[in-house]
Structures are given as structure tokens and as C-alpha cells.
Simulated assay, not measured.
Amino acid sequence: MSIATGNAFDDGPAHRGWLVGTFIEPPDSVANSTDVEIKWGTHAAGEERAEWTTGETRTSMMVLISGRFLQRLPDREVELRRQGDYVMWGPGVVHAWRAIEDSVMMTVRWPSV
């Protein structure tokens, strides 16, 4: 049986916040998965990815854990304000973001590549 424990705040920085995915070592770890990627992201107020992320081949979902966060998509901006608010988009959708307040986000992408 594979088991992993830890703390997302402590373990995340080793892989830019990613806790599960094909890139997690060792390859036989329960956290190494070709099915899904999971990230615990902490973002200071004002932090942003202003340029559009392009060429994405996965489906993505971001869930607000705390704070306020703005997800920019081609046809709209989605403000995540309340704990549990989420936004999901499919492959090929360009996106950018900005933390309105100090924010903690959980991102899930599938499959892991």
C-alpha cells in the first residue's frame, strides 16, 4: 500500500507548489501520477501572471481556499471571492490571473503530462 503524508505549505515549494503529477519523485511514489496534477499555490496580493498561458493540453480547475483571486479567460474575468469558489476550463483555453488579496489556491489539472 502506498501512503504519503505531509503539509502542502511545506512540501509544495519543491515543485513550484505541485504535490501530485508525473514529475514527482520517486517514480513509484503514490504522488507520481499520469492521471492528475494537484497544486497548492500561495499568492501574495498583487502577484499575477499577466501574460496569457498558451498551448495548454489539459483540463484545469482552480479552487479558492482563502483570499480573493481573479482568473482571466478569453471571454470573461472570474473573481473567486468565497472559500470554495472555483473556475474550470478545457484544453486550449488561454488564461492569466491576479491575486486580489493574499490567496491560497488549489489547482487540479488532468491528465498529467
Rank of each mutant, 00 (worst) to 15 (best):
P13E: 10
A14Y: 04
R16V: 00
G17W: 11
W18Y: 08
L19R: 02
V20F: 05
G21N: 07
G21R: 02
G21E: 05
G21S: 01
G21W: 05
T22M: 12
F23D: 03
F23Y: 03
I24W: 01
I24Q: 04
I24P: 03
E25V: 00
E25H: 06
P26I: 12
P26Q: 05
P26K: 10
D28Y: 01
D28T: 11
V30H: 05
A31V: 01
A31C: 13
N32F: 02
N32Q: 15
N32G: 01
S33G: 09
D35V: 15
D35R: 09
V36M: 11
V36W: 08
V36I: 12
E37H: 09
I38P: 02
I38C: 15
K39L: 07
K39I: 15
K39P: 00
W40A: 06
G41A: 06
G41E: 06
T42C: 03
H43L: 15
H43Y: 14
A44M: 04
A45L: 10
A45Q: 12
A45D: 07
G46T: 03
G46K: 07
G46S: 11
G46N: 05
E47Y: 03
R49A: 10
R49T: 01
R49K: 09
A50Q: 04
A50H: 14
E51R: 11
T53S: 08
T53V: 15
T54N: 03
G55M: 00
G55L: 06
T57I: 04
T57H: 03
R58K: 11
R58Q: 07
S60E: 10
S60F: 03
S60K: 14
M62D: 13
M62I: 07
V63A: 01
V63Y: 14
L64P: 06
L64E: 11
L64I: 15
I65R: 05
S66L: 00
G67T: 13
G67P: 12
R68D: 14
R68M: 09
R68C: 10
F69S: 06
F69M: 08
L70H: 01
L70A: 13
L70T: 06
L70W: 00
L73N: 06
P74I: 08
P74T: 07
P74M: 13
D75P: 05
D75S: 13
E77R: 12
E77Q: 13
V78T: 14
V78S: 04
V78K: 13
E79A: 11
L80Q: 09
L80Y: 14
L80R: 08
R81K: 15
